[in-house]
């Protein structure tokens, strides 16, 4: 589990859990509710470059396709094969087994651009997010 309280958040509902220069990334519980049943995720390849707030993966439900934006810039160090095989993990455990990828950060300072847990909780209460 990457405890939600210890994560940082994008405005597009991705979380990042940073530890030792590597950020684990996934989607928030709010996002998985909005998307509803996830049927497919296209994960980035190991070694792919990411850029903060730019698409690095795709999430499909039955009726929609959504972009997954990288919460930080860097290089993909790992992708969650278990999620690729069973996309429902992102619904069942968005902060645990449903993580998307691990990114070796090129600029850890970017984490400051993200919201903390409290700010994100406020953010999703705004009506525009619904």
């Amino acid at each position: 589990m990457y405890k939600p309280e210890n994560c940082k958040y994008t405005k597009t509902h991705e979380w990042a859990f940073a530890e030792g220069g590597v950020a684990v990334a996934g989607i928030t519980d709010f996002a998985q509710h909005e998307i509803s049943d996830i049927v497919f995720v296209e994960l980035p390849k190991i070694g792919a470059k990411t850029e903060q707030n730019k698409r690095c993966a795709v999430i499909e439900s039955v009726k929609a396709a959504s972009d997954f934006n990288a919460p930080v810039s860097g290089e993909v160090a790992a992708a969650n094969d278990a999620l690729a095989a069973n996309p429902a993990l992102a619904n069942q455990s968005p902060h645990g087994d449903g993580w998307f990828c691990k990114i070796k950060m090129s600029n850890p300072g970017e984490l400051d651009n993200l919201m903390d847990y409290a700010a994100y909780q406020e953010f999703i209460k705004q009506p525009a997010q619904h």
Partner: peptide, 13 residues
């Protein structure tokens, strides 16, 4: 099925 590949959902992508 697998409709998220298609134009009515993904439009320009």
């Amino acid at each position: 099925t697998l409709q998220a590949r298609e134009q009515h959902i993904r439009r320009e992508k």
